[in-house]
Design a protein around this nucleic acid. Sequence first.
DNA 1: TATGAATGAGTGTTCATTCAT
DNA 2: TATGAATGAACACTCATTCAT
Lengths: 204, 204, 204, 204
Amino acid sequence: MNRPRVQPEYIRRQQIMDAAFVVATEEGLINTTIAKIAKQAQLSTGIVSHHFGDKQGLIKACMREMLRILHIKVDAYRSKASASPQAQIKAIIDANFDDSQTTPQAMRLWLEFWSASLHTPELQRLQQINDRRLYSNLYFYFLQLLPQTQSQIAATALAALIDGLWLRGSLGGSKQSFDAEQARHIAYSYLEMQLHLYSAVQGD
Amino acid sequence: MNRPRVQPEYIRRQQIMDAAFVVATEEGLINTTIAKIAKQAQLSTGIVSHHFGDKQGLIKACMREMLRILHIKVDAYRSKASASPQAQIKAIIDANFDDSQTTPQAMRLWLEFWSASLHTPELQRLQQINDRRLYSNLYFYFLQLLPQTQSQIAATALAALIDGLWLRGSLGGSKQSFDAEQARHIAYSYLEMQLHLYSAVQGD
Amino acid sequence: MNRPRVQPEYIRRQQIMDAAFVVATEEGLINTTIAKIAKQAQLSTGIVSHHFGDKQGLIKACMREMLRILHIKVDAYRSKASASPQAQIKAIIDANFDDSQTTPQAMRLWLEFWSASLHTPELQRLQQINDRRLYSNLYFYFLQLLPQTQSQIAATALAALIDGLWLRGSLGGSKQSFDAEQARHIAYSYLEMQLHLYSAVQGD
Amino acid sequence: MNRPRVQPEYIRRQQIMDAAFVVATEEGLINTTIAKIAKQAQLSTGIVSHHFGDKQGLIKACMREMLRILHIKVDAYRSKASASPQAQIKAIIDANFDDSQTTPQAMRLWLEFWSASLHTPELQRLQQINDRRLYSNLYFYFLQLLPQTQSQIAATALAALIDGLWLRGSLGGSKQSFDAEQARHIAYSYLEMQLHLYSAVQGD
DNA sequence: TATGAATGAGTGTTCATTCAT
DNA sequence: TATGAATGAACACTCATTCAT
């Protein structure tokens, strides 16, 4: 009956979070019960409270994990790109539309957690931090290209464009796959329009 | 005690939906129980199944109602505007950022239902119809201003921009109010940039 | 499956409390689960929250019910007795050792609830009110027979004697029945000793 | 990390029981879990079954320990007192109302274990042995002062008085401290009344 | 001796739904 | 039409116990 398998703490945590990701992707976070997670992980129901305190603790850890991976992805794209502001902004766009983030599963998962954050202050806090980070990053580089007021607007707009493209893409349903190429193109265009417009004005 | 007052069907339905809106706004759709709705409406718990079949039927009716009101709003703005494509597109933007749609309560409600649609195919269908309508409307007018390919992109981008601005605004929390003025300005700018860019190219 | 039997509210409540009394007597309050109560009452588990809010609400109602019955018993004995202080004190003693209160089942039940009150402020409050009432009643009549200081002591002692006899009797286990006759005799003796002693002192 | 320090069996047992006493006093026996005890003792959860078989074994050992200490206390008082029956009875009273037994913590602990004994035959047995011991001791000395029948009654009554005073005192709550002085005075008085009454009858 | 990860039966509670009135 | 008592499956969570290390 009882078989205490010895696994390093972090392995077990990852294993349980992975199970939670699978269940949440398949059934929606609202239908994700501890019993289902435990079954998916081939462990007992008590395991969640053992490692995460309670269900909420697990959900929070999962969201942190997703954000962590996104940030790693952003960092990777940015370090590969040249240091110019434009290249950095494009790197941010690329990271947000990277294949790892735009599979139907990944998008579903993001939406589930994003949606959950509406009712959960703790998750909302994580979400807001992430949102501000996207804005701040964009704003930082726009400042090197545009005046302050226009930078604020451009950063706000580009962040909204990224989220909006992604949001609308995800609503298409699992059948219709997200057109990441088009999304990237649209975001790039916005960037270029802003810069072109500004240099045109400057040029006068 | 409570002598059943005879009410026309549609009055009762509206009364119950209004109660559902109140509860969903205050407590979140996830915490909206039939008991709470019934209490808010000063009716019994049985009333919901009586008029809507089950809870799901009520939720669906509520979402339809919200979409209906949005469409009325869009139509109102469009009929007040001049017939020019630009004016019509701006009317659509205006309707989406109308005061009635950007109060914290209204935005909360939209998000709740949008979030619910993730797990509920029936709601998702309604949501998708609405999404496509926004795109189609924009595409229709862009076609009168731009070539086809660019129209597709412009409509996709503007729709995403509207949703994204609105989405990011709503995440700010109930304290920080949505800056509808800025949102409208950004959307207008995008429209003008597209047109300006095209006429510049044309002008060459 | 669902069979809403129509019963007046107070009948159902009584029925559920009776079931709780049976289970608590047989298995101890600590082992009294909602499932067992529901089974005993031949009702579903949801019934408790329906009528009492939660388990705690049911337990509280049960304790109130027990106290109510004891008070009725005390009142009955006192109204049958003559108005003299001695007779009234004896009536209180009689009520506390009445057959209805000294069956093994009744005593077990009292002890269970008394014990539960240790961990439950709300029950403790009820218990304390009951304790003070016993003391106050005794003190009131002793004052008509003895000086104030001695009345305080006599009331404290007689209340303790009653509770102590009853407590020790109950610990004898369910096999050995409580000797109510002896308990009453001991309590009576204490009363008489107090009065005799005082009149002896007075007589000097 | 925690290198297992080798400890003699009896030290470990005492250490664990002490932890159990602390937790039971602070949170009530009902809320005393093995995890809490282990944490208090700075040991692992497995330690309890290791040394006491199971939780029940620990509880039993704890109760035995409490009774043991009470008996030591009684013996100490009795050996300090003169050999006269009266002095010995007073010594028993003194021991039961000794400071060590009447602190709020000690009384809380006694009540917790006493209450637990209701649902646990094994604990009840220990409790009954203790009860009979109190009665037997009192009876033994009363027999040297009074006739048999009266001795039985006096011993029963005095035991009940001691337990009752203590019981009612403990219910006062943690704020209101137990008046040990008054309790002792009342118990002494009872003893003296009995003897005085008897000698008065004898004197006739 | 001692650890603590893992178990899983058991608990109180919630709540959409049913249906006799 | 309307009521609300009753249902019972589903849920998160607790915790004594086990056992490989």
